[in-house]
Structures are given as C-alpha cells and as structure tokens.
C-alpha cells in the first residue's frame, strides 16, 4: 500500500481524490456532468502547452520554469503585433505563432544564459525574472505606438487590459477546429490535437542527440561533462524550448478564452502550470509528457468542476479560487520539501 502511494505520489493521489469527490458532489447536486466534462476538456486544452513548457526546463536541471511569463509575454507581443497589422482568422493565428517562435527563441536564449549564471538558485531568480518581465511589458503596452482601434482604450493611449479575439475573427479558432460532440460533451479537437502533437514532438526531441544530452546534463551534470558534453548549452536549448512552448501556449490559451489578457494577467500564470505538472507526478527534477497530460486534466479539471459545485454549496464565497490557491501552492511547497540537498549555501 505504502509502496503504491510512494510510486504514484501523494499530490497526484490527493488531488485525484478531490476531483472524484467534487464530481460525485456535482452529480448529487444534479449538475449537468456533460457540460462539466466539456468545460474540463476545454480548460485542459487551453492550459496544456503552458504545462508542457515545464518539461524541457525540468529535464535540463533548471527546475520548473517559474519564469513562464517570459514566454507568455513573448507570445502576447507576437499576437498584438499581428493584430496591429489587422490580420484576422487563421492568418492571425499562424502569423502570431510564427512570430512568437522567433521572439521566444531570442528571449529564451537570454533567459537560459541567465539561468546558467545563477545555478543553485534558479527557481527564486526565475520567479523574479518572470515578475520583472511582466512589469516591463506593462510599460511597453502603454507606451508603444499601437494604433489599431480594436485594441486601444476608448480614451487615451496604450492597449486595453483585455483584447477580444472575436473582433479579429479568431476566438476559439483552434478549439473549434474539427470539434465534435459526444452527447452533450464538446471535444475541442484542434486544441487537444495540437497538445498531442507537441507532446509527441517533445518526446521525440528528447530521443535525439541534443535531447539526450540535455537529459543527461539535467540528471547528472558530472556524467554529461565526462561524456564530453556542454551542459550549459543544453540548459540554454531546453529553456529556449520551454519559452517557445509558453509563447505558443498563451496564444492557444487566448483563443480558447476569447480574450488576450495583457498587463498583470500573466503575472501569476507560472504557478498553476508548475502545480499541474507536479500533480501529474513530476518532481522538481523529473518530468515527462505523461505527467503533463495527467496533471493538466486532473488539476484544471478539478478547478473547472469545483467552481459550479462550490457556488451551489456556498453561494458567493469564491471557494473554488481559495481551493485553487491552497492546492496549487501546497503542491509546490511539497515538491520543494522533496528537493534533495539544496544548495548550498
């Protein structure tokens, strides 16, 4: 029994148990489980890539990418630039993703360099780098000369807090691609497919020469060094990949949500992503795509399902958000207690 618990991991078990309880409660309350499942699938699809961004970072030994906002801001910037050119529909999606890949590669490179300078305290520095980037982009949103009326304030200069993607005919574009219905459950095929493809690509990447080198450098830098590898370069490559995934991830998220959230929206986005991959069974030093898929469905599923259930139980208390905070940060804290040795210092 104890062995099974250890193997699956306490966070996974505990959060899964909660999900089951919430779903049972929902059934008792007479909520439409089918609508609930639709929402759960949709939320999971929206967050999938952001969670997947954790895998390369963890594998390379820099730990969970708490600096996810870097990639997110890169993605948003790409999106906003393409909006400025008044692209719409698929053109907007594809161009912004392409631009996001370019931007995030540059930003990820710089970020990877930074991570190599602060070995041993990556997580702390990453968090503040992420926060700083968000604050920096807040200034950019305000001062850069974006002029498309669809995304400016009614009065004054600067971009809006949230930009509607529908005004660019891009809301839910990927989600609705090939979407089909099973009973009342809507399956956002496009989003899930994209997540699936990216997972497969990441898995394959870690079977290539470069991917294996990153993996070895992450689990045992000494071993990698003795095998003639450049560990630092591997870490940079992994963080570029992570940042790019975050950049694409936020575009997928935005189209699913229907809005691009600027300003402080991305500030706290790394924490649920970190928590999800941990809930999927990853640790601060070990992760794979299975953890991502499992984690994002359990965690986002729980969050989606808990909202209507809690609302019906205790109207107006926002209990599900409180639960999110406690679970999300509790899981991260638990993972931190499992980090071995720790610096040193």
């Amino acid at each position: 029994m104890k062995k099974i618990v250890e193997r699956i991991g306490i966070p996974t078990l505990a959060v899964t148990a909660m999900l089951v309880i919430v779903l049972i409660t929902a059934a008792i309350q007479g909520q439409s489980l089918q609508t609930l499942f639709s929402d759960m699938l949709n939320r999971a699809g929206m967050n999938g890539l952001l969670v997947l961004a954790m895998v390369p970072a963890i594998k390379s030994g820099t730990g969970p990418n708490f600096a996810l906002p870097i990639g997110i801001e890169g993605g948003l910037f790409a999106l906003v630039c393409c909006m400025q050119m008044d692209l719409g529909g698929w053109k907007l999606m594809i161009c912004s993703i392409a631009l996001a890949i370019v931007l995030c590669t540059l930003m990820g490179y710089a970020y990877g360099k930074l991570m190599n300078c602060v070995k041993g305290a990556e997580m702390t520095i990453a968090t503040y780098t992420g926060f700083s980037i968000v604050a920096f982009f807040n200034i950019l949103w305000l001062v850069l000369p974006f002029s498309n009326r669809k995304m400016g304030w009614m009065l004054g200069t600067g971009l809006r807090e949230t930009i509607q993607l529908d005004s660019f005919e891009a809301g839910g574009l990927i989600s609705n691609l090939l979407a089909f219905q099973v009973g009342k459950i809507t399956v956002p095929t496009g989003m899930l497919l994209l997540l699936g493809i990216c997972c497969v690509l990441v898995s394959y990447f870690f079977k290539t020469k470069a991917g294996l080198a990153i993996y070895a450098g992450g689990v045992n830098p000494q071993f990698a060094l003795a095998a003639g590898l450049n560990v630092d370069r591997g870490r940079i490559l992994a963080n570029i990949l992570s940042t790019v995934l975050a950049g694409i991830g936020i575009i997928v998220y935005s189209q699913g949500y229907g809005y691009a959230q600027l300003y402080n929206g991305p500030m706290m986005m790394s924490f649920p992503a970190v928590a999800a991959v941990l809930i999927g069974g990853a640790t601060a030093a070990k992760a794979n795509c299975m953890n991502v898929v499992l984690g994002v469905f359990i965690f986002q599923g729980l969050m989606t399902a808990a909202m209507p259930v809690a609302n019906q139980l205790f109207a107006g208390t926002d209990l599900s958000d409180i639960m999110r905070q406690i679970i999300q940060n509790g899981v991260i804290l638990y993972a931190l207690t499992q980090v071995k040795k720790g610096g040193d210092r």
């Binding site: 294996l212 045992n220 071993f223 003795a226 095998a227 003639g228």
Partner: peptide
C-alpha cells in the same frame, strides 16, 4: 572509467543500453 561510479560514471535511473551507448552516441 571514473572512480566515482555512481556520481559520475552512470545515469543510475536510465537503462543499461543507454548508459553503454551514451558517450559514443554523443561524441
């Protein structure tokens, strides 16, 4: 063949075949 077998010599959580092939694959 390093003196620190467990620390430097091996990827303990990886299969034997990868351990054997690793350096030749990389270099």
């Amino acid at each position: 063949v390093c003196e620190d077998r467990k620390g430097v010599g091996l990827l303990l959580n990886s299969p034997i075949d990868l351990n054997i092939a690793f350096t030749a694959l990389q270099t």
